[in-house]
Design a binder for these strands. Sequence first.
DNA 1: CTGTTAGCGCCTTCAC
DNA 2: GTGAAGGCGCTAACAG
Lengths: 343, 343
Amino acid sequence: MTGQVTLADVARAAGVSPATASRALNGSPGRTVRADLAVRVAAAAVELGYSVNAHAQAMARGTTTTVGLIVHDIADPYAAAIASGVMAAAAERGLIVTIASTASDAALELTHLRALLQQRARAVILAGSRFTDAESTAAMSSVTAAIAAAGGRIAAIGADRLGVRTVEIDNFGGAAHLASTLCSLGYRHFAVLAGPEHLVTCDDRLAGFREGLAGAGVDLDPENVLTTQFTRDGGYVAMRELLDRGLAADCVFAVNDVMAVGAMAALREHGYRVGSDVALAGFDGIPTLRDIEPPLTTVRLPLPEIGRAALELAVAGETGPRPAPVRGDVVVRASTPGVASVP
Amino acid sequence: MTGQVTLADVARAAGVSPATASRALNGSPGRTVRADLAVRVAAAAVELGYSVNAHAQAMARGTTTTVGLIVHDIADPYAAAIASGVMAAAAERGLIVTIASTASDAALELTHLRALLQQRARAVILAGSRFTDAESTAAMSSVTAAIAAAGGRIAAIGADRLGVRTVEIDNFGGAAHLASTLCSLGYRHFAVLAGPEHLVTCDDRLAGFREGLAGAGVDLDPENVLTTQFTRDGGYVAMRELLDRGLAADCVFAVNDVMAVGAMAALREHGYRVGSDVALAGFDGIPTLRDIEPPLTTVRLPLPEIGRAALELAVAGETGPRPAPVRGDVVVRASTPGVASVP
DNA sequence: CTGTTAGCGCCTTCAC
DNA sequence: GTGAAGGCGCTAACAG
């Protein structure tokens, strides 16, 4: 950072005041600079290889161009898809995106959020926070309050447990719709690979699924609802357990797609063919999964659009109407071909 | 950003000077603060809800805690896996990661790089830049030079075309090893879905593959080498073309895994069963692909470790030994079961 | 060990 | 339209 070219250098080289150079290079509301001066300044800037110092600018202007995005794991396709939407929308506005992964660790999430506060991020997006204990919630709330006090905006995706603006996802409705669709395909005996307990997203999907089944007069045996990690390995483990105790279901619903992938692997290891031997459905609509064999039935969420909406919600702040919950589309594919005896 | 509590406020509340407060809260090399004062300062900070302003800190200290990562598309599992490694290593050092996607657009890449310069990022990692024309290279070089001049470090992953420290990947060797392995499985007629022309990574993989075949006395018909996009859709399109002209190969090599996924989809649409009807191999070792059916033979790269290495290389700067190129492991799975007549 | 003093680079009143 | 001056919040000297 030594020997940096500063605005003062440029101004001197162009024979104008720093103020004029600033106005010429970075603009100033309502003010203009004479064309010839502007040209001279621009030339000097290029000549000297000048580049604004964003920190100095942030100091002086009192506002930044950084937005933060907090996810569980950027390597999870769900998070990556959302991130791509956030980043695209941010790029359009000249905003820079800082991403942090919590690795499902509440302390880490807090650390990242604090860092974003220190950066005076203009907005931060919480994509799928999953800690519901009172202690972490309180700690998070205090930081989000500080961010808000500093003029930053906060938005959440999915479930809001912090009282912030949220891009809501109709997990309940999507799961219910999926359940009734599966019933109409002739399935009657279900098992659910649920996520961890007390995770709102999972709870909603499970509740919605149950509701959908009930609408078709189908019951869900509590024995067939397994709580597990919200990951590929979680799905694998839970499916193995189900198989070990002798699978008593003709259709398995994994509350998200990556869990379904794990379940698929477990089924295959056990010699089951997904589709013909047992049906399988997921939730999220991760892009890659349309290409697996058999293609997975799922509730497809417009993930990049959700990310984009979250960014827009965050930068818009309190103004604007509350957005409608995002609904997913039930996509029936070969992993749930339907029961043969049903037309 | 108004009504922010500043260090001066904390100092006043604690009855000490700003300097002492600064030393107590944020430390200073070699200096210590008397315990009781430190306690008072800490208490005041909590009381007032103080949070350092990272921009002011960056200004005063002349250095930042931001590192930038530039990828093509964060939704690509390859980039996401690298990013997770970069972020993990960064978190350990208290560094914040800013990610930008170029969407394979040279102008966008330049824009992002400039933004990182303005932020005075301590390091920036270029993961798979793919523009080789003289104009973009020159523009990029001038910005990287400016970043270096500002004390920032640059590191690249894969091919280095900018003269920066690079985590090299042995694409040639990996592809050669894959080719000879496939030959030993009995395959003799190959097709390659190559990426775009002049993309160093692709060129290396193609050349290595050819070399490996040559070592087994097998020839690669130029007709069977298709240039295409480096994406899932690229693989799909190229595979369709190959099929339309009547597939004249018993084994197809896609130069990366996402292309292989697209190829698999095209094959399936045409009624081919991957593995038994035609063999298929990829490159990268993207995690999800171990779970697809049939599991994909590939050259597995330790993507998160590569990301981690790139970060370490970048923050280490010019010191330290040049790291050895990363070698991939050939992983043979069911997509290349081998030719029946061969034991 | 603590306090005082100068900036870091930029923007923005306020005069001109 | 331009310029001069003050300050954003923090830390690194320098005294004490």
